[in-house]
Design a protein around this nucleic acid. Structure first.
Length: 151
DNA sequence: GCCAACGTTGGC
DNA sequence: GCCAACGTTGGC
């Protein structure tokens, strides 16, 4: 099993929004960065991911989700009215993909970015790399275990 | 709201 | 293929 971290702005889509969805499941659309897309496409059913709230008062890992459907074309890229529309993509050769995620749990205590930064055991974490803005990233099994214990 | 850092675009 | 200009991300 592989581990991941996925960022979302809570004002756009928060973990409580996910909790309110039928079967607590929703598609993770809108990824428009090639590196993040490549990670999305590597995800396997059953993989776990941290749900991270970005661009908010307290940036933090707020819970855990499970990948329940592997990468398939993100329909918003074909929708002229969507802000995620991409004129350079086509149904024959889609450029952007998404997965479905299901809520596993909302953490009682979010793991804040500042706590993550201060933990010397966390090594080689893309999230805390200077200047990193990736919205989908892998998490090593070591880092996953350390972070889970902080929750 | 500011701004550093990054990714993308497009002229040459 | 280089690189300046621009747009976006995201912490603070």
């Amino acid at each position: 099993m592989n581990y991941w971290l996925m960022k979302s702005e809570p004002s756009t889509f928060s973990i409580t929004d996910l909790e309110k969805k039928p079967r607590k499941t929703e598609c993770w659309d809108g990824v428009r960065n090639y590196q993040a897309r490549n990670f999305l496409c590597q995800m396997k059913k059953g993989d776990r991911a941290f749900f991270y709230h970005s661009s908010c008062e307290v940036p933090a890992i707020v819970g855990e989700v499970e990948i329940v459907k592997e990468a398939y074309p993100d329909p918003s890229q074909f929708d002229r009215k969507s802000k995620y529309f991409d004129a350079n993509s086509s149904e024959e050769k889609p450029r952007w993909f998404m997965v479905d995620v299901k809520l596993v749990e909302i953490f009682k205590e979010p793991i804040t970015l500042s706590v993550i930064r201060q933990n010397p055991k966390i090594k080689d974490f893309i999230l805390t790399k200077r200047g990193s803005r990736l919205s989908v990233m892998p998490v090593s099994a070591d880092n996953w275990g350390i972070l889970k214990k902080l929750q």
